[in-house]
């Protein structure tokens, strides 16, 4: 019950982030230190006009948002900020395909969430990108 309430509150918060809205991100699953967020293909996000492939910077935003959302689901977390984020670009995302990132907090301390994320364009066996990052955990003093 409490878990469901937290997930709903975090989901509502994520839906209000202006840049996440500008990229039409949609929260698909949230809770237990995990978050799944989808981002539809959009011609405005193309990074290489020769191929129609989405810019890595848009994938970064998706990974960062999913990582932050995963950190926010941890009990007692009032806020979070990204400390660092490394993204490995495995292959270009298929033009036209929705990209979906799933982030997992694989270790959480009092002040830091260590997060991994995987982004897929539908072929889950061959990710588009993976990410690893550290996010702050802000708690009530």
């Amino acid at each position: 019950m409490e878990e469901a309430g937290r997930a709903a509150a975090v989901g509502a918060f994520m839906d209000r982030l202006p840049y996440a809205r500008a990229l039409a991100m949609a929260v698909e699953a949230l809770g237990g230190g995990e978050a799944t967020i989808a981002m539809p293909w959009n011609a405005a996000l193309v990074g290489d006009p020769a191929t129609g492939v989405i810019h890595g910077g848009a994938v970064s935003a998706l990974m960062d948002t999913a990582g932050g959302a995963a950190a926010m689901t941890m009990p007692g977390t009032l806020g979070t900020a990204t400390l660092d984020l490394r993204i490995d670009y495995m292959r270009p995302a298929a033009p036209g395909a929705t990209i979906r990132a799933r982030a997992t907090c694989y270790h959480v301390t009092r002040h830091v969430a260590f997060v991994r994320a995987v982004a897929s364009d539908g072929d889950d066996a061959h990710p588009v990108a993976t990410a690893a990052g550290a996010f702050t955990i802000e708690r009530a003093p």
Partner: peptide, 26 residues
């Protein structure tokens, strides 16, 4: 305004910062 991440601070979205840096590098 659309570049904002957390509207309560407000601060640029981390994804905007990452993209800005990556575009600059490329």
């Amino acid at each position: 305004e659309r570049l904002i991440g957390n509207p309560s601070l407000p601060a640029l979205h981390g994804g905007v910062t990452a993209a800005f840096l990556e575009v600059t590098a490329i």
